[in-house]
Amino acid sequence: MTATPVLDALPAGSRERLALLGREVSFPAGALIFEEGGSADRFWIIRSGSVALTVHVPGRRPPTVETLGPGDLLGWSWLFPPYEWHLGAEARGPVRADEFDAPTVRVLCVEDLALGYALAQAVARVVADRLKATRMRLLDLYGPSGSGSMP
């Protein structure tokens, strides 16, 4: 069983309540799961397969910013206004995932504040991890100077 950091971070009762809202979906290889600027009305927890987060750049293949895999949360823009995707997501092979309807989850968060807080914190944790990872990559540590252990 793959660890799912987002769900694992929730208290037991909340985890079950949220899980009830999920439905299993699958995407064929190459499927565009969402596109930049689209309405962020869903999110997924990946069960299997790999998803690329991409940016549309005219004249070249969309560069991959990051890849996500089993256990990862796909999508966090659904939690914050204006609820629009700021990247695109593409299935790099067959992908299976649990899909959640964002408006329903947002309503649940308001109704059950403890669940809402725990989920917001779990998503914030994912965002923070990705921010840290992005900063690390900004440093280009493996680049021509400043990289390596023993030269």
């Binding site: 660890a3 560069p63 991959t64 990051e66």
Partner: peptide, 23 residues
């Protein structure tokens, strides 16, 4: 294996190495 900057042929992971820890 994960890379910071993929090229068009790369089919592996993209991201920092710590992102590989939870799998």
């Amino acid at each position: 294996v994960t890379v910071d900057r993929p090229d068009d042929r790369w089919t592996g992971e993209v991201g920092v190495v710590t992102a590989l820890l939870h799998r």
